[in-house]
Amino acid sequence: MIYLTLAFEFFKIGLFSIGGGMATLPFLMDLTAKYDWYTASELANMIAISESTPGPVGINMATYAGYNAAGIPGAVVATLSLTAPALIIIIVIAKFLENFSENPTVKAVFYGIRPTVAALIGYAVWELLKIALVITGSETTQIAYTSVFIFLGAFLLLQVKRLKKLHPLVWIIAGAVIGILFKI
């Protein structure tokens, strides 16, 4: 039953991805090794589309992953399963806990989790880089220097304050144009 597997996996993602939509990324990357729902390279496309369409990025990515795994029913199951833990937890907090975010223990937990979540997203980026910047032939693997150059250039440009504020969609369109021009 693919729907049960999807529900289980996305419930788990909803329960453990703390700190916003991008925190789901390391889990989505893990799924590429466990199931044949989508490849790591398809995951990169999913991120791009999720960032350039309306809606919360985390929800968009879950919907897309579910759709790739089992069509529209899969998309619905993945999305609802992702939101279920949050729904339960938030209602409990709203009902019983005052000043939840000011609680010292909650603060201590997040003191540990914040740098770790950044590292885990870093791991997902590392996996994506291996696909984006390396050409895997039938016998040899080599580094795609043009791609490395584009990546470094884009990353440096992103450090410029004014460019940083541009909508991700602008960057993604630029990426598509560069991809076609350089025949990457």
């Binding site: 991008m22 990324l25 390279s41 990169a44 496309n45 991120i47 791009a48 960032e51 997203i121 997902a124 980026v125 994506l128 880089l129 696909i131 984006a132 910047l133 791609s147 584009i150 990546f151 884009a154 990353f155 992103l158 991700p168 960057w171 993604i172 630029a174 990426g175 598509a176 144009v177 560069i178 991809g179 076609i180 350089f182 025949k183 990457i184």
Partner: peptide, 15 residues
């Protein structure tokens, strides 16, 4: 080609 270009940009955005 467009998707390959987008993948690189996505890496930069994520980084």
């Amino acid at each position: 080609h467009a998707l390959a270009g987008i993948r690189i940009i996505v890496c930069a955005l994520m980084m």
